[in-house]
């Protein structure tokens, strides 16, 4: 399997590349669209507006929409997940990819950003109860495609999924053994609990 990591100039990709490489697959950082891959991963750090703006360069926006329309595997991480929605309170003028409907909202908690480990709450037995690592000030409060939630003042979506599009608000690449397992499961399209 060939995995392409989309480089949107928003943060260090080393940990993402290392984590996906640990699955034994070939991992390449992409500065420009390239169809010669089985999976696209879109990490993102920093402001929604900045990363949304990066999507407008090199025709990424059209390429990703087309990729998803072809039902190919796509994984958005952190702001990369947020960009799968329509818009964000962080930068109201910026446009997301609108794969999912809804607006990203500011987390309602005295200490932001939320930094640390939280336990997933899900009806899916495989993800429910596992701890993952969050670094975010904004989140998705409601989505019909929400597969797992955590709480930070209010519940928000930790995982969204529709067909072959996955969004993780947390950092699987920093979430220890479970994070690596989740990456593996997502790539294989199966949810198998090993231990």
């Amino acid at each position: 399997m060939r995995i392409g990591i989309i480089n949107l100039n928003s943060g260090n990709l080393l940990s993402i590349v290392s984590a996906f490489s640990k699955t034994g697959n070939e991992v390449v950082v992409l500065d420009k669209p390239d169809s010669n891959f089985d999976v696209l991963v879109m990490p993102g750090q920093g402001r929604f507006g900045f990363v949304a703006d990066q999507l407008n360069k090199n025709n990424w926006r059209e390429f990703i929409l087309d990729w998803i329309a072809q039902d190919k595997l796509f994984i958005g991480i952190c702001v990369g997940m947020q960009l799968l929605f329509e818009s964000s309170q962080e930068d109201t003028g910026a446009k997301g990819l609108a794969i999912f409907t809804g607006e990203i909202e500011k987390l309602d908690f005295p200490k932001t950003p939320m930094v640390g480990w939280a336990q997933l709450n899900s009806v899916d037995e495989n993800s429910n109860g596992n701890f993952v690592y969050f670094v975010n000030s904004f989140g998705v409060r409601n989505s019909e495609f929400c597969q797992a939630t955590v709480n930070y003042g209010n519940d928000f979506c930790a995982i969204v999924q529709k067909d072959n599009v996955y969004g993780f608000q947390f950092h699987p690449e920093k979430s220890g053994d479970y994070g690596l397992q989740l990456i593996n499961e997502t790539l294989q399209g199966v949810a198998a609990c090993q231990n």
């Binding site: 908690f109 939320m114 640390g116 480990w117 939280a118 336990q119 709450n121 709480n151 930070y152 209010n154």
Partner: peptide, 12 residues
């Protein structure tokens, strides 16, 4: 200490 709802756990 504020009592607020959060899923975050203390870290070691």
């Amino acid at each position: 200490k504020l009592i607020q709802k959060t899923s975050l756990v203390p870290r070691i």
